[in-house]
């Protein structure tokens, strides 16, 4: 029987959402392939919510040195688990922590890693689906190796569809005494608490690299004024120093869900979408009809923003006068 091993990342005593979503993918895959499913948790604490998940076996690697994250120890620990378990497929959520250590494990085990997958299908061989060109195109990927490591994108599967069960729990000892630490991570911290809180904004205009230069932001400011909207942006606009960091929406910025999210000259890469996809009404103005933002937009305008925005400002101003 084939085997799937899932890494269940925990933080503050609970599994992370992305880990649970990836675990749902693992449950589905185990059912489709009729494979045995094991989960793995690192660190002293085993959350009850994980013990209640449907799987054949839950491996608990208790070593206290795994309580907090260090890449070298995590690689060594998972390598040891994989040596005993020999899974055909190892699955994790594509979190920042996983991005840090899982490719290193793939290097160590010389096995392929298919990262940031959004799905799989069986046709009749197993095919992984991932995005390329920043979400503009999907790719089917196949592997030819005895073992494959796969990470799943945040939101690719639904944690609320997880099946519950009563797995047998196995405490596993791993010997980490030989690992010398060359990387010393410090404590997590948040930079100065966001002074601009976009999470309560009712209307947001979010501007992307399509604005092309800082001076052109004035047309967005004018629109924001008549629309009574907060200004937000994609990452590059902040990277270039055109807007304050507090206005960045996405995986490394704020998460927002306004009534209206107007995305202007912004492609809608996944790292942006995770921060705004729950908005009430998403309107996108983009000159590329294939921009990924249109996959989640309620209303779309395929046009040059420099033609549309001033007209929109005028139309809104007239409506207010009327």
């Amino acid at each position: 029987m084939g085997k799937i091993l899932a890494y269940i990342q925990c933080a503050n005593g609970d599994p992370t959402r992305n880990a649970l979503e990836a675990f749902r993918a693992a449950q589905l895959l185990a059912a489709d392939l009729e494979y045995q499913l094991s989960g793995t948790v690192f660190g002293a604490h085993l959350p009850d919510s994980v013990k209640a998940l449907k799987m054949d076996q839950l491996i608990h690697v208790q070593s206290p040195s795994l309580m907090s994250y260090t890449p070298e120890l995590f690689v060594a620990a998972m390598d040891a688990v994989m040596k005993t378990e020999s899974p055909d497929i190892m699955i994790a959520g594509h979190t920042y922590q996983v991005r840090d250590w899982l490719p290193r494990l793939a290097g160590q085990r010389n096995c392929p890693m298919v990262s940031d997958c959004i799905g799989y299908h069986i046709d009749p061989e197993l095919i992984w689906v991932r995005q390329v060109f920043q979400g503009k195109i999907n790719a089917d990927v196949v592997t030819s190796a005895e073992q494959v490591i796969v990470s799943f994108q945040s939101g690719a599967y639904r944690a609320d569809q997880l099946e519950n069960g009563n797995p047998s729990i196995r405490a596993m000892e791993v010997d980490l005494s030989q690992v010398t630490l060359h990387v010393r991570p410090g404590e997590k911290f948040q930079d100065t608490k966001d002074s601009i809180d976009l999470s309560h904004a009712e209307r947001i205009i979010s501007v992307g690299r399509g604005i092309s230069e800082e001076a052109k932001l004035s047309i967005i400011h004018e629109l924001a004024a008549v629309l009574d909207a907060e200004l937000a942006s994609s990452r590059p606009v902040v990277d270039y120093g055109w807007l304050e960091h507090d206005r960045q929406v996405g995986s490394s910025g704020q998460t927002v869900s306004p009534k209206l999210y107007l995305a202007v000259g912004l492609s809608g890469a996944i790292q942006h979408q995770v921060g705004m996809k729950n908005s009430g009404c998403i309107v996108a103005i983009n000159k590329d009809a294939h921009a990924p933002i249109f996959e989640i937009a309620d209303y779309g305008v395929v046009a040059d923003l420099f033609e549309i925005i001033p007209q929109l400002t005028t139309a809104l101003a007239e409506r207010q006068k009327a």
Binding site: V132, A139, T314
Partner: peptide, 28 residues
């Protein structure tokens, strides 16, 4: 050990209403 077998345009998740016309018409 891994290769792309096929590329394709992703399916849309939401039904988008596209608004067309001249810039002025679109705005209205």
């Amino acid at each position: 050990m891994q290769s792309i077998t096929r590329l394709y345009i992703p399916e849309k998740i939401k039904e988008t209403t596209f608004i067309e016309g001249s810039a002025e018409e679109i705005a209205t």
